[in-house]
Computed example of a mutant assay.
Amino acid sequence: MADLKPAEVDKAKLHFDIYDFEGSGKVDAFHLGDLLRSLDLVPTQEAVLKAGGVKKKGEKYLSLEEFLPIFSQLKKEKEKGAYEDFMEGLKVYDKMENGTMLEAELAHILQSLGEKLSDPECEEIFAALGFTPDEEGNIPYEPFIKKLMAGPFPEANADKK
């Protein structure tokens, strides 16, 4: 790839080989999002599907030659969801202007905007990040955002304890 540096191609090959579970020179497109995230990209599920990912294992396989242009393209895309963007968006819900918001409102946001989460997924996030609401049902949103963006969770964080 002309727009990827040799070191980036080498790193992509290394990660590609890790996700080539059968040693066939191909990666199941079901794992495309995981492969891209292992290379420090943060594509949405929609972007992964648009780039060639699939929802079922065994449906489609990608060779390294097919993967490198996908990696290159998604690497160029403007990063979405920066810390500052999340802070500005959640300040709207900070009615007391004290850095907190109702946990129920945050759960509603996570379940209804962007890539919508299910109720169990929201509960898992709150539990994994260790946030419990105060007596009024509020949680501090700045540390929540920092912990969430630090990822990965929940399995990786369980290993660090």
Rank of each mutant, 00 (worst) to 15 (best):
L36K: 02
L36S: 04
L36M: 04
R37A: 03
L39Y: 00
L39E: 02
D40G: 02
D40E: 11
D40M: 08
L41Y: 03
V42A: 12
T44S: 15
E46P: 05
E46L: 11
E46T: 14
K50T: 13
K50W: 08
A51G: 06
G53V: 00
G53S: 01
G53R: 00
K55T: 13
K56W: 03
K57D: 02
K57Y: 06
K57I: 07
G58H: 11
Y61C: 02
L64N: 05
L64V: 10
E65C: 06
E66D: 14
E66Q: 15
F67R: 03
L68F: 06
I70V: 15
F71A: 04
F71P: 04
Q73N: 13
L74S: 01
L74A: 01
K75Y: 00
K76C: 05
E77Q: 14
E77N: 05
K80E: 13
K80F: 04
K80S: 11
K80D: 04
G81A: 00
G81V: 03
Y83H: 12
D85I: 02
D85T: 08
D85Y: 06
D85G: 10
M87H: 12
M87I: 14
M87T: 12
K91H: 07
K91W: 09
V92E: 07
V92I: 14
Y93G: 11
D94K: 10
K95L: 12
E97N: 15
E97H: 14
E97A: 15
N98I: 10
G99Q: 08
T100S: 10
M101C: 07
E103I: 14
E103V: 10
A104D: 15
A104L: 14
A104G: 14
L106H: 04
A107F: 06
H108Y: 14
L110I: 03
Q111T: 12
S112Q: 11
G114W: 02
G114A: 07
E115S: 05
E115I: 00
K116V: 03
K116P: 06
K116R: 13
K116H: 06
L117K: 14
S118I: 07
D119G: 05
P120H: 05
P120L: 10
E121I: 01
E121Y: 00
E121D: 15
C122A: 02
E123I: 09
E124L: 12
I125F: 01
A127F: 02
A128D: 09
L129P: 04
L129W: 08
F131C: 10
T132P: 00
P133V: 11
D134G: 02
D134A: 00
E135C: 08
E135K: 15
E135T: 12
